[in-house]
């Protein structure tokens, strides 16, 4: 900045300083709520209840909340169920989406247009909550984790995204495989999927995130507590007067004050893995948005 002061150009930097200040403010607003939960989770629960004003560090220090959360069976069952849904779900997601996207990029296929129309219609019309609920339970999927996997087996948006990645691959490559006697499965698995790796990665991440965040289908379809994915477990823990939460903390003397610190620890434990991962995955997500916006 000194250089500019000398050049008497400092006036031109005033807007930059103001803008930087606004951006800094935005940055703080983005980070502080998360930081606050970290502080609360490490706070001594009694001191936290008494504390007033803006928190800039934990009130006292205690790892009791984490001990409770890490020993909580529902949290671990939730993690296990979520991972189960992720793994099975992703197998379905990736298979169906790449098959569909590949089909839609082929030429000289008589039924391509009808299939395309069939798919596009579903982007504008849907059965809505109750007919979908009745259909899914009508298939006998009620109270089963398949109710979380099959209705979410693919997303049209992601398929269109992958199709635009696939459509950049030159046709001559597919033709040369055909020449060598290879079929469509060979083309898809040996050429298209490896060449569209960034696209596959974006898709994988989008699906993984949507499974991770999903709680509503579990909430309406599952009755057994031990089948609940992590987000549903958390939802129940965050509810007012949560009996699930009380079960974990009622053996402590000051359990009423423990509620909030334990909840905060749950938020941190369930969110930390993702927030730590995302800076490394950011470029893939951004790539997905770019491609998506081009196609719109």
């Amino acid at each position: 900045m000194n250089k500019y002061l000398k050049n008497k150009k400092w006036v031109s930097w005033i807007p930059d300083v103001i803008m930087a200040a606004i951006l800094l403010g935005i940055g703080i607003i983005m980070v502080y709520p998360v930081l606050y939960e970290v502080f609360v989770s490490f706070s001594d629960s009694v001191q936290f209840v008494r504390q007033r004003g803006i928190m800039v560090r934990p009130a006292g220090f205690s790892t009791l909340a984490y001990e409770i959360v890490l020993n909580a069976k529902p949290i671990w069952t939730g993690f296990r169920n979520t991972i189960l849904v992720e793994v099975i779900g992703l197998v379905f997601n990736l298979t169906l989406t790449s098959f569909g996207a590949y089909f839609l990029t082929r030429k000289n296929v008589l039924w391509k247009k009808p299939v395309n129309i069939l798919i596009i219609i579903t982007m504008y019309f849907s059965g809505g909550l109750i007919p979908t609920y009745l259909t899914v339970t009508g298939y006998g999927l009620g109270n089963s984790i398949w109710a979380l996997i099959l209705p979410a087996a693919m997303s049209t948006y992601n398929m269109i995204l992958l199709r635009s990645y696939f459509s950049t691959i030159p046709d001559s490559l597919a033709e040369s495989v055909m020449m060598d006697g290879g079929g469509h499965f060979t083309i898809l698995f040996k050429i298209f999927i490896p060449l569209a790796k960034p696209g596959m990665m974006v898709m994988l991440l989008y699906y993984a995130v949507s499974h991770w965040n999903s709680w509503f289908s579990a909430f309406i379809y599952l009755r057994d507590v031990d089948k609940a994915p992590l987000q549903l477990v958390l939802k129940n823990m965050f509810a007012e007067e949560s009996t699930e939460l009380l079960k974990l903390i009622n053996k402590f003397d000051n359990f009423d004050s423990l509620q909030e610190t334990v909840r905060a620890a749950m938020m941190v434990v369930s969110t930390l893995p993702i927030v730590c991962l995302y800076p490394f995955l950011q470029k893939y997500f951004e790539g997905g948005i770019m491609i998506g916006s081009l196609k719109e």
């Binding site: 098959f99 089909f103 579903t122 007919p131 979908t132």
Partner: peptide, 28 residues
């Protein structure tokens, strides 16, 4: 295009089972 239709079959089945059957349920 036999193989291609085989590929798209589960996709079409998905849309029919989880989009079109619920849509028909709007009749209620």
């Amino acid at each position: 295009n036999k193989v291609l239709y085989l590929m798209v079959l589960p996709v079409v089945a998905f849309y029919i089972l989880f989009s079109y059957v619920p849509m028909s349920g709007i009749i209620i």
